[in-house]
Simulated assay, not measured.
Amino acid sequence: MTDDFPLAQELAWLTARLADLLLTRESAEEAVQSLALAAKEAIPHASGAGATLIDGRGRKTSTGATDEVVLEADRLQYEMGQGLCLSAWAEGTSQTIEDIGTETRWPLWTRAAASLGLRSALSAPLISGGTPIGAMKVYSDKAGMFSAHDLRLLEMLARPAAIMLANLQARDAAQRASALMTAAIADRDAIRMATGIIMERERLGPDEALSRIIDLSRLEQRALSDTAQDIVAGRPVL
C-alpha cells in the first residue's frame, strides 16, 4: 500500500486534470487531442504521445497527437495494418517496446518507426464497458526509457479516459443522428411543398408532379431535395 501511495497521488491529480481537459471539450476529436497532451504530461520520459479512437472494424475515427512524428507513426500503423497501438486495441492488453531497433513483432511498422527516430514505446488500450474503443501511446527517442511504473500509470490513466471518451462518442453520435433526422424532415417537407407547387402550376396529379421533380433532379444531376428547395424558393429549374 505504501509503495502505491505516490502512484495513487499521481493518479488523483491526473484524473482531475483529465476531467478538466476532456469534459470541457465539445467533441470526441477535441477530447482525444487533449488526452494525448495529458499522456505526454503524465509520463516524464515521453518525447511524444497520442491517443486514437478505433471502430469495430479497426478503423481510426478520431486521433490526437502531441507531435508530427506521432501522427506519422500512427499513419504507418493503419497503412500497414500492424503496430503496438493496433495490437493494444485488438487484444485489449498493454504493449511495450524496449527497443524498436531490435523488436521482432510488427516488423514492417518497427522498421518504419525506427526511421522516424523512435526507439521505445508504450501503449495501453482504452476500454469502456469491456470493449476496446481505442488506445493511448507514448514514445521516446531513446531505448529502454519506460519503466513498469510508467506503464501502470498509463494504464490507470486510460481507465477514466475511456469512460469519458465513450460518453463523448455517444453524445456525438446522438447529435449526428438528430442532425440527420432534422435534415430528413426538412427534405421531406421541401419535396411535399414542391410537389404541391408543380401540381398547381402544371395541373398535374400528385404522382405526376413528383415524377416531374424527379425528372428535373436527374436532368440537373442534383439531389431531389435540392431541386425541391429551388422550386419552393422560386428559383429557376430546367
Rank of each mutant, 00 (worst) to 15 (best):
T2R: 12
D4K: 15
D4E: 14
P6Y: 05
A8K: 05
Q9M: 11
E10G: 14
A12Q: 07
W13G: 12
R17D: 09
L22R: 05
T24D: 01
E29D: 09
E30Y: 04
A31T: 09
V32N: 03
A39C: 11
K40M: 15
I43L: 07
P44D: 14
A49Y: 02
T52D: 10
I54W: 05
I54T: 06
G58D: 00
G58A: 03
T63E: 11
V70T: 13
L71N: 15
E72S: 14
R75M: 14
L76M: 13
Q77T: 07
G81C: 03
L84I: 12
G92N: 09
S94C: 05
S94K: 00
S94H: 04
D99R: 03
I100P: 04
G101V: 06
T102H: 05
R105Y: 05
L108P: 06
A113N: 04
S115Y: 01
L116M: 04
G117R: 04
R119E: 08
A124L: 05
P125H: 06
I127V: 14
I127R: 07
G129D: 08
G130D: 02
I133D: 04
G134P: 01
M136V: 13
M136K: 04
K137N: 15
K137P: 00
S147P: 01
S147E: 00
A148D: 13
D150N: 08
L154F: 04
A158Y: 00
A158K: 02
A158C: 01
A161Q: 02
A162H: 01
L165P: 03
L168V: 04
Q169P: 00
D172F: 08
A174L: 13
A174F: 00
R176F: 02
R176N: 07
A179H: 10
L180S: 07
M181P: 02
A183C: 07
A184R: 08
I185V: 12
A186E: 14
A190D: 10
A194E: 10
T195R: 14
G196H: 12
G196M: 09
I197K: 11
M199Y: 01
R201G: 06
L204E: 05
G205V: 13
P206K: 05
D207F: 03
R212L: 13
I213N: 00
I213S: 03
L216T: 06
S217E: 00
E220H: 13
R222H: 09
A223F: 15
T227I: 15
A228P: 03
I231Y: 02
I231L: 09
P236V: 06
V237N: 03
L238C: 12
